[in-house]
């Protein structure tokens, strides 16, 4: 199941970046057992319930978040404003939805929370509980690093 999840998440990220942003997302190797070690400026986090219960987080730096937002709105975006926060949450949501479709055919049985956004400057992600299982997927897009963390509470 873990390998299927990694494959579904990787394909979902590649799809969302390609279709929404017209940017190729190049996957690195998946890391299990811990969240990303990438220092991040903004994270979009979606809670997931269903055949797999947990959360998905899309973590990136300001430069990538503003690049994507500016590209989609055809504006120069240099700071993390409300549009950037909204878009990071939407991207997390789209990745979760797309991955769920790949895992269950039509995504039936999965439910997602409204995205939560966390911003800061070079934040470190740390687990708050010891009983969670982590899959962390590093990516590169337009020469910038980002990561997807999947935190599993049960079922996988």
């Amino acid at each position: 199941m873990r390998q299927r999840l990694i494959e579904a998440l990787t394909a979902a990220v590649e799809h969302v970046f390609s279709v929404l942003c017209g940017i190729e997302a190049k996957p690195g190797g998946a890391v299990t057992g811990q969240p990303t070690s990438l220092p991040v400026d903004i994270s979009g986090i979606v809670g997931i319930e269903g055949p797999i219960t947990g959360s998905l987080a899309f973590h990136c730096r300001k430069d990538l978040a503003t690049l994507i937002t500016g590209k989609l709105l055809e504006l120069e975006v240099t700071e993390i404003d409300d549009d950037v926060k909204d878009l990071v949450g939407e991207i997390a949501n789209m990745i979760a939805g797309n991955a769920s479709s790949r895992l269950s055919g039509d995504g039936q049985g999965f439910q997602f929370s409204v995205p939560t956004i966390v911003t800061g400057r070079r934040l470190n992600v740390r687990p708050m509980r010891g009983d969670l299982r982590w899959i962390s997927l590093p990516f590169q897009a337009s020469g910038m690093s980002f990561a997807i963390d999947f935190c599993i509470e049960d079922g996988a």
Binding site: V19, L20, M94, A96, D106, G107, Q108
Partner: peptide
């Protein structure tokens, strides 16, 4: 306008009078 994974719920939506859906991410 839905995320992928919500298509199964569209049958219920059509019963209520929805004419179609667009899946995010869209082009």
């Amino acid at each position: 306008v839905t995320t992928e994974g919500a298509q199964a719920k569209m049958e219920e939506a059509k019963q209520l009078g929805v004419d179609g859906y667009v899946t995010k991410p869209f082009t």
